[in-house]
Simulated scan of single mutants.
Amino acid sequence: MPQMPAPDYPAEVRARLEADAREVIARYPDSRSALLPLLHLTQSEDGYVTRTGVRFCAEMLGLTTAEVTAVSTFYSMYRRKPSGDYQVGVCTNTLCAVMGGDAIFEELGEHLGVGNGETTEDGKVTLEHIECNAACDFAPVVMVNWEFFDNQTPESAKQLVDDLRAGREVAPTRGAPLCTYRDTARILAGFPDARPGAVEATGGAGHASLVGLRLAKGEDAPGRIVSPRSAPAERTEDVPAGGKEAPGTHPSSHDAPQETSASDPEHPAGPVSEEGE
Rank of each mutant, 00 (worst) to 15 (best):
P2S: 03
P2V: 01
Q3S: 08
A6I: 03
P7W: 07
Y9W: 07
A11P: 08
E12Y: 12
E12P: 13
E12V: 13
V13D: 10
V13I: 11
R16D: 14
R16Q: 14
L17C: 04
E18S: 15
D20H: 13
A21P: 09
A21N: 05
R22I: 11
A26I: 02
R27L: 04
P29S: 04
S31C: 02
S31P: 04
S33E: 07
L36Q: 09
L41G: 06
T42Y: 03
Q43R: 03
E45V: 10
D46S: 11
T50A: 01
G53Q: 02
V54D: 00
C57K: 00
M60S: 06
L61G: 04
T64A: 03
E67M: 01
V68S: 02
F74Q: 04
S76T: 09
R79A: 08
S83A: 09
S83Q: 07
G84L: 11
Y86Q: 12
V88C: 09
G89D: 13
G89I: 13
V90L: 05
V90E: 07
C96Y: 01
V98E: 02
V98S: 02
G101F: 02
G101E: 02
A103G: 00
E107Q: 14
L108Q: 10
L108R: 08
G109F: 06
G113L: 12
N116L: 08
E118S: 09
E121V: 15
E121W: 15
K124S: 15
T126N: 06
H129T: 05
H129K: 07
E131S: 06
N133T: 14
C136Q: 05
F138T: 10
A139R: 04
V144H: 14
W146A: 14
F148M: 11
Q152V: 00
T153A: 04
A157Q: 08
A157Y: 04
Q159T: 15
D163S: 13
E169P: 15
E169K: 13
T173F: 05
R174F: 14
G175S: 12
A176L: 11
L178I: 11
Y181N: 13
Y181E: 14
T184G: 10
I187Y: 12
I187R: 12
L188T: 07
G190L: 08
F191S: 12
E200W: 03
E200C: 04
L210K: 08
L213K: 15
L215I: 03
A216G: 06
G218T: 00
G218W: 01
P222I: 02
G223T: 01
G223F: 00
R224L: 01
V226W: 09
S227F: 10
R229I: 15
A231I: 14
A233D: 15
T236F: 04
T236D: 02
D238I: 07
P240M: 06
P240A: 07
G242F: 02
A246W: 00
A246Q: 01
P247L: 00
S252V: 01
S253G: 14
H254N: 08
H254L: 06
D255M: 12
A256W: 10
P257C: 04
T260M: 01
T260W: 00
T260D: 01
D264L: 07
H267E: 11
A269P: 02
G270I: 01
V272L: 12
S273P: 08
E275Y: 13
G276N: 15
